[in-house]
């Protein structure tokens, strides 16, 4: 990472700490914002958060590793989360998943080579009455079929 980038990241984290406070209870909101901005929380970001909150970097890493929506290695700029739980599964999740995989040429769990899209499975999204459902970044899509799912993906490509 370039020195300039590092400085900028430190500044960003300082702003977040002003916003949420220097308490331990601010850790997750701070990490969530970094995640949102950079699509992952780098080693350097983890160290800076730890330093500025006065906790051990291992603590920060341990929290990140616990939560499905926080990650310490880079992901695509857009994250697609398709529900894999039973109601969506029975409503045709598999066909939707295969269609998306074919279209993007990657499997679930992978990121496109241009870093645009990461495909992931998620557990029940609370849309079971209108499944199959998926969340793309912060938007929820439901009543999916293969064609509809692919056209949604193509819009963010």
């Amino acid at each position: 990472m370039l020195v300039m980038e590092k400085n900028q990241l430190t500044e960003e984290i300082e702003v977040l700490i002003k916003k949420y406070g220097k308490e331990r209870s601010s850790l997750i909101p701070i990490l969530q914002d970094i995640q949102k901005q950079h699509s992952y929380i780098s080693d350097y970001a983890q160290q800076e958060v730890a330093r500025l909150l006065d906790i051990h970097p291992v603590e920060v890493f341990s929290v990140i590793s616990f939560y499905a929506f926080l990650n310490s290695s880079p992901k695509g700029r857009n994250i697609v989360r398709l529900c894999q739980t039973i109601t969506c599964d029975l409503a045709g999740k598999k066909n939707v998943a295969s269609a998306i995989e074919r279209e993007l040429g990657i499997k679930f769990g992978q990121t496109t080579p241009d870093n645009k899209i990461t495909l992931e499975y998620a557990n029940c999204l609370g849309m079971c009455d209108v499944g199959p459902a998926m969340i793309v970044n912060d938007r929820v899509y439901y009543k999916l079929d293969p064609e509809k799912a692919v056209s949604i993906i193509n819009e963010i490509r």
Binding site: T85, I86, C124, G126
Partner: peptide, 11 residues
């Protein structure tokens, strides 16, 4: 936190 599979009434 409504995470129990099959629950969406809180939504």
């Amino acid at each position: 936190d409504e995470g129990e599979p099959g629950t969406f009434k809180d939504r």
